[in-house]
Amino acid sequence: CFEPRQPRLKKCAGDIPRLANETIFTMNEVEALYELFKKLSSSIIDDGMIHKEELQLALFQTPSGENLFVDRIFDLFDEKKNDVIEFDEFVHALSVFHPNAPMEDKIDFAFRLYDLRQTGFIEREEVKQMVIAILMESDMTLSDDLLEAIIDKTFADADADKDGRINSEEWKDFVLRNPNLLKNMTLPYLKDLTTLFPSFVFNTKVED
């Protein structure tokens, strides 16, 4: 199955239809995703689970260093909150990034991503923290006045009830007016999984 510490075991045929049923992927696409998962989950520790360092390595080509956004992505993928990403969690989360996934799901995922403290609101301090993180990541500097001006403008646009925080309804209205904010919530690669990972056919257990 896709159980931790048994990465080389053959997948349970029953897991594939279950995951296909729970997500937007076909059964063969789930198998193709397993090829990607095997690669990512064995890049540092070959134990059939993706550790944060492995995600960091895949995204930044270096396993070291801290990145606020990697932390958030990791937390959202890690449904069971056991500090690793298991295969079913990987498939569930990537399903949201499929070009055909419902827009509502992408909006909700992005909201949870930016709601750093998970209070149900995106707060001004959280936005400031994320802007500072992106500036550090890209070696850019901005004066504090400019930083505050950017955040003021964003809240003037997004925070309709002016309570200093963005709730999920305000977020939805805001991203529908600014759809480019959801660009990174769609991965065109997910439409071509069986072409990208053709080796799934050597291990296939199902026929779509």
């Binding site: 995204l59 956004f69 990697v70 994320m130 993180a133 964003t154």
Partner: peptide, 26 residues
């Protein structure tokens, strides 16, 4: 383009940490 006209989330969404397409690239 003045940075003040930028939206904070536009800036944030450019993070490499949020660019999951790199999972599919070598």
């Amino acid at each position: 383009v003045s940075p003040v006209t930028m939206n904070a989330f536009e800036l944030i969404s450019t993070s490499q940490g949020l660019n999951l397409s790199s999972l599919f690239e070598k």
